[in-house]
Design a binder for these strands. Structure first.
Lengths: 334, 334
DNA sequence: CTGTTAGCGCTTTCAA
DNA sequence: TTGAAAGCGCTAACAG
């Protein structure tokens, strides 16, 4: 079924059908109705492939999601898809493995789909500039700050991780904790991890509290299981510790579970803070004290910036979204 | 840059370039090399849009994910994508709203992308047969049983929900619970909900235990928040109840949180069971007693069946994957 | 083995 | 306001 068939049955030319289906104004109401009647009769839908071949502007936005199981990123994706329904763009989603190189995959996607813009959910494409530069369309990284990259078409929207980490660390310190351990990501490969660590250190230093990296930092993947192991290691290395700063709610939960299993109650014997402020942090037992990232603001600002870049209204920019401190039950108060 | 440009520079015809790029055998090595030299020089990639318009066989599998925030479905998606990398198919993911009609959206996707096959992650497309029948390609529903549909190209892979629900209800009964409440989905709209409810009732009836639907069944969405509310309602309506059967881990967690907040400890005062057996069930406090669905088996069997259907090796089939009972800490034992 | 060409389904310009 | 027709980039059938 093609517009040709529709045209035949509606007794008009294919051009007219095309005009109707693309909402062009210069079609008489009568013809429009006749065409729509046939279209509805068969539930006809334009062949997008052919359409795209013709109008070089693909009107597609490609979204690359880093990692399968991040609730934050999935929520972000949901918000973006929802908002996109009202826009004249279609969306194409690709989910990457945690260890895929997002810039490399993006360049493949770019050639295959010729999208109008690219959204990176998570990940740090700016870290492989060679691949990034092949992308000749506006891009926005959501969740990670990419301001370090000088790429002229790469924007980013992120939470101020440095301030967030400092804020929650201050809270621990304010409540009397001095010996604080850290369960974080891999400092080498993750920019987010570096920022949160820096924020943590800033708070410690501001209060003249020492921090022994060897003894008090254990790196783990952003998973329950891995951070449970890390918690065990940390406690064994560092028996005097009274609080743990973790870099994600999932890590905090993994740690809580592990400590409970070891007979160390949270928060009575050990305080734990998370990061992200996802729904499950609030339903965990104990409720997690954490930093909440504003998902809606991240997603909407990211999309807005991308669209403005596509329409060439503005240049690439790097925006920080405010966070909220969530006072849960996982920190023993002074 | 098109094959025409390549052809000009390589001093041959476009057909030849096409043949080289599609690995057709009947090209002389000499010509092939000459063409490839030019192709590599510019990093040329075929325009997939034009290609798809021509070769009707798109070699694309469309995946429709029902709902944004289901961890189970996201895990499934990850497994499928991973396995697909080794196959000569590309994959296109569309995430639907919880309330979208998946069959309707599938028919739109079908027209737009002309995929070789469709995977439904969650959802029950068989419930709107009119739309389903427009899909003239093999389809597989993963997670929900679609055997009730007599659609000849629709397969499904699912856990035996009836048996799973019966199994975990039996466990409650075996541990002395007689007054059991249910937090479930909407019986009207969800086939899964009906199956799990049926399994629950089977177990109750097998032990001659009465169940008063009005007093003991509260329906909720599959979210923390909604089932927390449902738990409250259930407790108020039904003070003698000693256990709650919930139809998802997320529901169980919502209920646990709510009860703790009301001073009703789990499992001492109230036993709660979940369903799905997701990672967070095992890291919750208390660990959830639940039914674990085998994600890997669901995903892999689904993909296998779809591929066999595409290659016309077999007819549509409906497969049940065994589940596992997970003995957690959320049920008070006799 | 290689060149030529029709045509995939659509949009849009040009004429009427 | 509508119709006719060119052509987007590619593949495959056909001819040589």
């Amino acid at each position: 079924m093609t517009i040709k068939d529709i045209a035949r049955e509606a007794e008009c030319a294919v051009g007219t059908v095309s005009r109707v289906l693309n909402n062009h104004p210069d079609v008489s109401d009568q013809t429009r109705e006749k065409v729509m009647a046939v279209v509805n009769k068969y539930g006809f839908v334009l062949n997008n492939t052919a359409r795209r071949l013709k109008v070089q502007d693909s009107k597609t936005i490609s979204v690359l999601v880093k990692g399968t199981s991040s609730i934050l990123l999935n929520d972000l994706l949901g918000i973006i898809q929802k908002r996109m329904e009202e826009l004249p763009y279609s969306i194409s989603v690709t989910v990457l493995d945690e260890f895929d190189n997002e810039a490399k995959i993006a360049s493949r996607v770019y050639y295959e789909q010729k999208p109008t813009g690219i959204i990176f959910l998570g990940g740090s494409p700016e870290e492989s500039p060679e691949d990034l530069h092949k992308l000749q369309v506006p891009c926005v990284v959501i969740t990670n700050d990419a301001s370090a990259s000088k790429c002229p078409f790469l924007s980013s929207v992120s939470t101020d991780d440095l301030a967030g980490a400092r804020c929650i660390t201050e809270w621990l310190i304010k409540n009397g904790h001095k010996k604080i351990g850290v369960i974080g990501g891999d400092l080498q490969s993750s920019g987010i991890t570096r920022k949160r660590y820096r924020g943590f250190l800033d708070a410690m230093e501001a209060h003249n509290l020492p921090f022994d990296f060897e003894k008090s930092y254990v790196s783990a993947r952003y998973s329950f299981e891995d951070s449970a192991k890390a918690a065990k290691e940390l406690v064994e290395k560092n028996p005097k510790m009274t609080a743990i700063f973790t870099m994600a709610d999932s890590m905090a939960i993994g740690a809580c579970r592990q400590l409970s299993d070891m007979g160390i109650s949270v928060p009575e014997k050990m305080s734990i803070v998370g990061y992200d402020g996802l729904p499950y942090a609030d339903y965990y037992n104990p409720r997690l004290t954490t930093i909440r990232q504003d998902e809606v603001a991240l997603a909407e600002n990211g999309l807005d910036i991308l669209l403005k870049n596509i329409e060439r209204v503005v240049k690439a920019e790097h925006k920080l979204i405010p966070f909220t401190f969530v006072d849960g039950e996982s920190v023993k108060k002074k």
